[in-house]
């Protein structure tokens, strides 16, 4: 598209609660705290000059052993203008984030996936259950400290031995 995304509009509105991540080059990227995430998403969707109406993806990231350990990455798209934007939200351990299912219904399964894979709890989510793994499964498979082959049990003789202090539950 010809026009550039007016990032300053977002910064003016949220002032110091939102910062721009300059290290990213493929699309504009803003960093926000969990407290302002819902406000930012609502603003991006409803503002007439932005209209980010399409929520493409939610991605959990684990920076173990760094701190803050977790990050949520949201990718939004504005169908009327053809812009993309990335929102990053850093989370402490244990990770707790607000849900955005009230803004986009599609967030429901994306958040369930992030919960299933990283154990990120979304406050206010209507149906926060595991989505890929079975209900009885213990641990968060995509975390960096979860072994590639899983933990050894009756069904998985090739898995790693579980350490006592491991936070697999």
């Amino acid at each position: 598209m010809d026009d550039v995304l007016p990032l300053s509009r977002i910064i003016d509105h949220f002032e110091d609660r939102v910062t721009v991540d300059e290290t990213v080059s493929d699309m504009p990227c803003v960093v926000v705290g969990p407290d302002d995430l819902v406000a930012l998403c609502t603003f991006l969707r409803d503002d007439d000059l932005l209209q980010f109406n399409f929520m493409a993806d939610i991605c959990g990231v684990d920076f173990y052993p760094d701190s803050p350990r977790f990050q949520l990455v949201y990718h939004l798209y504005s169908i009327p203008f053809g812009w993309r934007i990335r929102i990053k939200c850093l989370l402490a351990d244990p990770p707790l984030a607000p849900t955005i299912t009230d803004i986009w219904t599609t967030a429901n399964w994306h958040e369930r996936e992030a919960y299933d894979m990283y154990g990120i709890v979304f406050e206010g989510h209507p149906d926060l259950r595991r989505i890929y793994m079975w209900e009885e499964f213990e641990g968060w498979p995509m975390r960096k400290d979860f072994p590639l082959r899983g933990y050894k049990d009756a069904y998985n003789p090739f898995g790693d031995e579980k350490k006592d202090q491991g936070d697999a539950s």
Partner: peptide, 28 residues
């Protein structure tokens, strides 16, 4: 670095989000 690339796959928007830490394997 990191990149999100979306293409029009037959089923819809197929996006790949890759975070690289500079090694031979993707970080995410």
């Amino acid at each position: 670095g990191e990149v999100y690339v979306a293409i029009e796959a037959p089923k819809g928007e197929l996006g790949y989000y890759i975070i690289s830490d500079g090694s031979e394997k993707p970080f995410r």
